[in-house]
């Protein structure tokens, strides 16, 4: 079953003369085991697309389905439940709650979902181990490097049985080596059956994706298949 589907999604911010079209008729399908990269200039609607895909924002028109369920029919409470159980989010920065330790940050969606502290901690430790940071379980974010924080954020996005991972420039604040390790984790999860959407500016990071879509002014202007080399992007659209 398709994990994520956007059907003719429009999103307009504001009204009248100050209205801004963030997305204009976007159609997108992401299947299990598929990582889709979204690229485009600043203001093209990448973050808006991700917010709508994750239920943090609603389209002005169109529909969004996650695992066959239309998000438009869900209440705020149901959308929150969806994000706790099915959707994982990774941002570029300020991912972690600074008042919680690493393991508590990872366990956060589980605890919010009603899991006991002990059980949530156990599952969270497992997730931290998968990202290679079990020794940082009881550290606070201020005592970790940027790369470590981002890996903790990945662990939180992947904890439990998440089927959709949305990453908004997760490597933006990291050095190349750390960024690569973060993408490797993401790729591994997608290969294990999840679906992923990765917003990135970096062509070499888009190379980790199965498919790249290009957004401009809220419209998908092009789609590319798996990119084996970064240079492949130069041949997709001579206008770029």
């Amino acid at each position: 079953m398709t994990v994520l589907q956007l059907k003719a999604v429009h999103r307009t911010h504001g009204t009248g003369a100050t209205a801004v079209k963030a997305l204009a008729g976007v159609d997108l399908i992401v299947n299990p085991g598929e990582l889709v990269a979204v690229m485009g200039p600043s203001g093209s609607g990448k973050s808006t697309l991700l917010n709508i895909a994750g239920g943090l924002d609603r389209p002005s028109t169109g529909d969004v389905l996650v695992e066959g369920r239309s998000l438009l029919s869900l209440s705020k409470r149901d959308l929150a439940a969806l994000r706790r159980r099915s959707i994982g989010y990774v941002f570029q920065d300020l991912n972690l709650l600074r008042s919680l330790t690493a393991v508590e940050n990872v366990a956060l969606p589980l605890e919010l979902d009603g899991s006991s502290v002990r059980k949530a901690r156990k599952v969270a430790l497992q997730a931290l181990t998968e990202v290679g940071l079990p020794e940082l379980a009881d550290r606070f974010p201020d005592d970790m490097s940027g790369g470590q924080q981002q890996r903790v954020a990945i662990a939180r996005a992947l904890v439990g049985e998440r089927r959709l991972v949305l990453a908004d420039e997760p490597t933006g604040a990291l050095d190349s080596q750390t960024g690569e390790s973060v993408l490797r984790l993401l790729r591994a999860r997608v290969d294990a059956g999840a679906a992923g959407v990765l917003v990135t500016h970096e062509a070499r990071h888009a190379g980790w994706a199965d498919r790249v879509i290009f957004l401009r002014d809220g419209v998908i202007v092009d789609t590319a298949g798996p990119l084996t080399q970064a240079e492949d992007l130069l041949t997709v659209d001579g206008a770029r």
Binding site: L56, K76, A80, L96, L97
Partner: peptide, 16 residues
């Protein structure tokens, strides 16, 4: 505010 954004993203219900 940034903490609230993160909480929303990880699925905290609005009443959080």
């Amino acid at each position: 505010r940034s903490d609230l954004t993160t909480l929303a993203a990880v699925g905290a219900s609005p009443r959080v």
